[in-house]
Design a protein around this nucleic acid. Structure first.
Lengths: 226, 226
DNA sequence: GCCCGCGTTTTCGCTCAGTGAAAGCCGGAC
DNA sequence: GTCCGGCTTTCACTGAGCGAAAACGCGGGC
């Protein structure tokens, strides 16, 4: 991938995913494996364009141009718009927090709240993992005593998720919180997950089918709009 | 700008701003001024990276990688996270739609909805204009009979916005809709605007102070977190 | 003051990645 | 069948990009 000018530019941008918000030139060179002068040239072009910004201290951060483009990217915007009514209905019916979640930068990104979730410890993350849209992080963090980090049981659970079309997580991310998630398809391929988070005191047998139905509704709406 | 490989890549991406969601190769070449084979090569590299996606019909759209990066862009993400509670409270109290708006790509970008607003016809846009974060577009479009397009009155209004710390727009963008906006500062410099949009039937005297208070709350929250 | 070390920036000659006109290909209209 | 428009491939030329090395700038130790 790094064997063309374009590839080098991309790798510089990629260096900012899963990284501190600001990076110094040397750090960018290290992360991309590029020689420092080369990294400098890439970075300069990016700054001139607006894809990167240079801080007062000389460090670099992602710039407004990237943000503009990200906001113009159609799929998730359309996805959120399409999903919102169904999500609101789900919230109203269950009282939990409903969200639609996509893979982004190695983590699960909630489109409504903008939060990033650890894939292995949340229901939505497990849906995305189960279908290969995310991969289990090398060091899967243990967020609570109930977080599953061992590869074996996790893989078995993912197989069940694939088979059943439903994922759940009981206090694996935050204590006192459970979540359900179901896959959303566009034109037959998985693009996101609908997730519902609620206190563990909620009556869970009623939640799972509701999440599944909502995900199906969103999928149908996506296909309906071409 | 188009005189380097990187510049060409960027111009391809820029072609998708203010454009239909999908573009065909020929259209990209036309918009960028690139020869078709060159455009094809750029586009292919972008697709390989994930910055563009190719639709079933052969057309191109912005891809997930761009979205990932946009979500990783630090300032607005943090901004949105910090502002959300206050925005929700504002919505709850007034019934209107509350948003936080930043300058991006020459227009006002709503972080919650992702919508782009014309600077001169919306309250949030006027706040950003008044403080020089945006400039009045060369051809200021007239969206409704009440849109102000004449430079003189507009400049006077911007001066008032600066002085009062509050902007408003009455049916200047959409009929039946009014909006208020107030500036958000981080470390003393203006970074965004809080805006509230409501039907003209809303009781406006109560809205303006609420917007002002919300903006102040967000500013304080931003400064509190370093 | 001086020197050292680290990060950043500039220089410069080589070379191969990128270029784009032209030709080929495919599919749809007539 | 022929034409036409858009997409893709070919190919020989060339200058944009490369990166080792050198220069610069700055803080910190002494």
């Amino acid at each position: 991938m790094a064997e063309s000018v374009a590839g080098r530019v991309f790798s510089v941008l990629d260096a900012f995913v899963d990284a501190p918000v600001t990076l110094r030139l040397t750090e960018i060179a290290r992360r991309t494996g590029l020689p420092v002068p080369t990294a400098l040239r890439m970075v300069r072009e990016l700054v001139a364009w607006g894809g990167l910004e240079r801080g007062a201290d000389g460090s670099y951060r992602l710039g407004t141009r990237i943000r503009t483009l990200g906001a113009a990217a159609p799929c998730p915007r359309g996805l959120l718009d399409t999903a919102l009514p169904a999500l609101r209905a789900l919230t109203a019916r269950t009282g939990g927090h409903a969200d639609v979640v996509i893979p982004a930068g190695g983590t699960a990104l909630c489109l409504v709240t903008g939060a990033r979730l650890p894939p292995h410890a949340t229901a939505a993350g497990k849906v995305l993992l189960a279908h290969g849209l995310l991969t289990v992080p090398a060091a899967a963090a243990r967020h609570t005593p109930r977080t599953r980090t061992a590869p074996g049981p996790l893989a078995a659970q993912l197989a069940r998720v694939r088979a059943s079309g439903l994922a759940e997580a009981h206090e694996e991310y935050h204590l006192g919180e459970l979540s359900f998630a179901a896959p959303v398809f566009r034109a037959g391929t998985l693009v996101a997950a609908v997730s519902l988070t609620a206190p563990t005191t909620a009556h869970s047998p009623r939640l799972a089918p509701a999440v599944r139905r909502t995900a199906a509704t969103v999928s149908r709406a996506l296909d309906g709009q071409g």
